[in-house]
Design a protein around this nucleic acid. Sequence first.
DNA 1: GCAAAAGTGTTATCAGTACACCCATGG
DNA 2: CCATGGGTGTACTGATAACACTTTTGC
Lengths: 231, 231
Amino acid sequence: MEIKQQIRLAVDAIVFGYEKNTLYVLAVQQKYGVFKDFWVLPGGFIKDDEPLITAVKRELLEEAGISVNYLEQLNTYGDDVHRDSRGRVVSVAYFALVNPQNFVLKADTDAKDAKWFPIDKLPKLGYDHKEMVDLAHQRLKGKLTYQPIGFDLLDDEFLFSDLENLYCSILEQDIDRRNFRKKILSFGIVKETEKLVKMRASGRPGKLFKFDKDKYDSLLGENFQFEIKFA
Amino acid sequence: MEIKQQIRLAVDAIVFGYEKNTLYVLAVQQKYGVFKDFWVLPGGFIKDDEPLITAVKRELLEEAGISVNYLEQLNTYGDDVHRDSRGRVVSVAYFALVNPQNFVLKADTDAKDAKWFPIDKLPKLGYDHKEMVDLAHQRLKGKLTYQPIGFDLLDDEFLFSDLENLYCSILEQDIDRRNFRKKILSFGIVKETEKLVKMRASGRPGKLFKFDKDKYDSLLGENFQFEIKFA
DNA sequence: GCAAAAGTGTTATCAGTACACCCATGG
DNA sequence: CCATGGGTGTACTGATAACACTTTTGC
């Protein structure tokens, strides 16, 4: 292994949060470099002895003080040799969902400013990060329909209308309340609790529901397919 | 950018070929290193000024003399810090389909031995390449059902039974011939040619069909969804 | 004429879709 | 009593699933 590469490896994360019918993306403000004062996705170079996934989690903790609920690899950006003006940088982008508990950003060790932006009000992002957000957004929309990841954006216990509004607002579609409930309940992976709460300012209180992950995992074994389609 | 990483970046490809109801994977024999004489996936280190995708294509040409029909990024392997005993190597794996024209392997510049293995008769592969093959195999099965990529494994013109057998053998399911044909034809992306040929040793000759990519691309614009499900 | 593969329609069943009214709460 | 959101059932429709015989060719 004589040949030395002049390539550096980084990770970036597209972190989605959801609150009040709005989908948010996490961005941080650059303090140095070409993109000083620009908003970019949280991320950074990986250490020599650090697994990729560890690097992402570390960066998220350092830059925004959050830990995420769901994390998966999205895509590796390495076709544009000049995507970073400092030299050849290849970046592995991760797709993440954060649950509302972690939605509030803690003070960050890196002294960078971290902030949630509604996805349709994102500022101009540095590097090719807009491209990453777009891809992640597509993935989110796609996965919502064939994997129960929506629950990772909600509280542990939620109203059925929360789930419905989440699907409705992220997929930008109207949903029939009765059909939606029928479909979700037919999977048997969401269970009703006994708690009746009034979460809204007005209206009748609703029951809280929980995602039954164990049940889902066990169903996965036997030809079970989660899928939500709409009219 | 003072800190220098000691990480090297490679690409690997899982290339699928299909012939006579059998799914094949391309492997090459290592001539040097720890895995000397082991079979591994085609791949290698990328050059400093080389896009990832170019690196994959180059390696495939060098090591097996083939160019592929379909190529997409699969996953980046960088969580196991010791996946390569020579040091920290992160590898971007690509998923590729080759059409039958390129199925015959040409002499390779790298003097490595390249060979097609039926997927269920793969030899032990070096590194974490078995893991890559498994993931790619899963992706292939999945994509077959919701994207028309099966055509990339077939000749430009094919018998309907070829397509049916491909789905049938890769997905390991029985298919009802009439329902399958009805479904595929209903999409309008496969057109019948006037050619009647006898491709088989015996039996009635069949019409040749072609995948109409332009039609597919135009349909994609408008809420069209390719999907094949089975009983 | 026999073996092998191509070609072709109809019916039954199930899942998806459309749709509207009553209930519980707060103000 | 009014506004707001929660909760519920049925009938229609369209897609999927099951199913078997006839045709063309080579030998």
